[in-house]
Simulated scan of single mutants.
Amino acid sequence: MAIECLVLGAGQEVGKSCVLVSMGGRRIMFDCGMHMGHLDNRRYPDFSKICEKGDFNSALTCIVITHFHLDHVGALPYFTEVCGYNGPIFMSYPTKALAPLMLEDYRKVMVERRGEEEQFTSDHIIECMKKVTPIDLKQVVQVDKDLQICAYYAGHVLGAVMIYAKVGGSAMVYTGDYNMTPDRHLGAAQIDCLELDLLITESTYATTIRDSKYAREREFLKAVHKCVASGGKVLIPTFALGRAQELCILLDDYWERMNLEAPIYFSAANAP
């Protein structure tokens, strides 16, 4: 069975992940993200390449979202509420809970603070999420009589998954972002031993050689401790979802081991 792959975003670039895979008469859109570096029509995937007349409901079998980061889900409300897609959408339970928070925060920043043209409204986000069917890890979902999908744990952020899809005798996996190094609040990605005809994988840092996680944490804690010990204050700008929790756990453990008494504050002004 022939498998065709159309990359609508994140091909040789970081941002607007969106890949359309056709196999056995089924067309699956993996992720529907936006590019955070553009404010023009390059912000969204080129949806016109999916079909000529824009009848996305007949052109797509389903959409599967891997996690809540905007480069993977940011274009979804626009695609459903503005472009008119009304078909099946699948994502994990945590992603369905957290994606609206990310989308609304982005909308507020772009429209209310920066004065940009509104691409989608708060109501669009709410209506979009009503169309989503949440799925569990390793839950086999029968999308139709021929298409099965199954989500596997990807690490990275809470709710992130890799997606296994099978039609007839053809099978594939799409990863989105994943992490093979466990941290303090999430484990490493896990997936069964599978026979695949196609693997589409995130590879942003594939050629980057980093210091060990232990070495990076040690240097971070050393710098923080030096500043606090000299009477200074440390401000750490970081993502409110995932990264902030990881750093809080790291600092709390270090504070206990070193018997430090300086208070640690978490700014929740824009956090859920």
Results as ranks from 00 to 15, higher is better:
Asn270Tyr: 11
Cys62Gly: 03
Ile28Met: 06
Val7Arg: 02
Arg184Gln: 08
Cys83Thr: 13
Tyr174Leu: 09
Phe239Cys: 15
Ile264Phe: 07
Val64Cys: 04
Met129Asn: 05
Pro45Lys: 01
Asp177Thr: 11
Cys32Lys: 03
Asp253Phe: 11
Phe30Gly: 05
Leu39Asn: 12
Gln245Asp: 11
Glu13Arg: 14
Ser230Lys: 10
Ser170Cys: 13
Pro272Asn: 15
Gly87Asp: 13
Val161Phe: 00
Ala171Gly: 15
Asp105Cys: 14
Glu112Asn: 12
Ile249Asp: 03
Arg107Ser: 10
Lys213Asp: 08
Phe220Lys: 00
Val143Lys: 03
Val161Tyr: 01
Lys226Pro: 01
Leu194Pro: 11
Asp40Cys: 11
Trp255Gly: 10
Val173Gly: 08
Ile28Ser: 01
Thr204Trp: 10
Val64Ile: 06
Gly24Pro: 10
Cys32Ala: 15
Val224Leu: 06
His38Asn: 03
Leu6Pro: 01
Gly159Glu: 01
Thr61Asp: 02
Val21Met: 03
Gly115Cys: 12
Lys96Phe: 02
Leu101Ser: 06
Val132Asp: 02
Asn86His: 15
Ile3Gln: 04
Arg216Tyr: 04
Thr238Tyr: 01
Val73Ala: 00
Phe79Gln: 02
Tyr254Val: 05
Phe56Pro: 01
Thr208Phe: 04
Gln148Arg: 12
Ile200Leu: 13
Glu118Gly: 08
Tyr78Ile: 03
Ala75Asp: 05
Val157Leu: 03
Arg243Gly: 03
Thr207Glu: 07
Asn259Arg: 09
Asn86Asp: 13
Thr133Lys: 00
Thr95Tyr: 00
Gly159Arg: 00
Phe266Arg: 11
Met23Thr: 10
Gln119Met: 09
Val234Phe: 03
Gly84Phe: 10
Asp211Phe: 12
Pro100Glu: 07
Glu202Asn: 12
Tyr265Leu: 06
His69Ile: 06
Thr181Ala: 09
Gln190Glu: 09
Leu98Cys: 00
Ala215Tyr: 12
Met129Val: 12
Ala189Lys: 00
Asp253Ile: 15
Thr204Asn: 10
Thr66Leu: 03
Lys222Val: 11
Ala244Thr: 11
Pro88Gly: 12
Leu196Gly: 13
Thr238Ala: 07
Asp211Leu: 07
Thr80Glu: 02
Glu4Trp: 13
Tyr205Lys: 04
Ile63Tyr: 09
Gly54Arg: 08
Ala206Asn: 09
Tyr254His: 13
Glu127Ile: 14
Gly169Lys: 08
Leu76Ala: 00
Ile125Asn: 03
Thr204Ala: 13
Ser58Leu: 14
Thr80Ile: 06
Met180Ala: 14
